[in-house]
Amino acid sequence: MRNILIVARKEIQEGLRNRWVLATTLLLAGLALSLTFLGSAPTGTVGVRALDVVIVSLSSLTIFLVPLIALLISHDAIVGEMERGTMLLLLSYPVGRWQVLLGKFIGHLSILAFATLLGYGAAAGALAATGAEIDAESWIAFASMIGSSILLGAAFIAVGYLVSALVRERGTAGGIAVGIWLVFVLIYDMALLGMLVVDQGRTLSGGFLNALLLLNPADAYRLFNLTGTAGVSAFSGMAGVAQTATLGPYPLLAALAAWTLVPLGLAALAFSRREL
């Protein structure tokens, strides 16, 4: 356990030093703040559920941005250290490979969590400071949005590690990471939509659709946040979906957790078998 924390601490230290933490936090805070104030223009300041609007726009932002940031910091984690030669020295120390991997995971996730919490928290804080009335339900929805955003980041960090543990070169890892981002964030939904349009509801059942949505962490995240509470789903235009979707919040969270644990386990396995 101590080894894991030592590695995690070094990872955070490096993140602070090479300004990853600063850059991510500023980026998320900047975008969150601009969405909060520009995004509230159509509803006006009299909108009673200002925070719900923010949740809708922020979770849409998260789907694009958080997986990208997560893959950027994670795809290099193993193969990059191997190429630079730092891994050779590290593994000659009394530390297990799974401890290195888990330590890095905790470190990278802390960086992402810190940036998300601070960046998005700034938006909510700013909103509260302008005197908007926010009820408890909205706060809960906002908190669970931040929590699930971190979970989404965890899933993509784990996927990035798996790529990093499998490939031989950094460039390959970078390419695959971009590919994964494109598939999960953009192409998957388009393909799904296209399939539904072509099918016209004849053969594809709702259960099958649900399974397909769970197979993509970004979709699981989207459903969780946009249909999670009545107030939010009304704004997001997902109210119809929310009524027909048979997936409750727990299967969606479980899907995100599985998307974290399975790739992480596979990455540890691949890493332990690698020869330096």
């Binding site: 080894n3 030592i6 070094k10 230290q13 490096e14 030093r17 090479n18 630079r84 030669g85 730092t86 050779l88 020295l89 590290l90 000659s92 120390y93 009394p94 530390v95």
Partner: peptide
């Protein structure tokens, strides 16, 4: 190792302290 390398972002002291903690 031959061609030893370290993470370039940390200072010499921080690097050595990290390895000391592991040992």
């Amino acid at each position: 190792p031959e061609n030893v390398s370290f993470n370039t972002a940390l200072t010499g002291h921080e690097t050595l302290a990290f390895y000391a903690r592991l040992k």
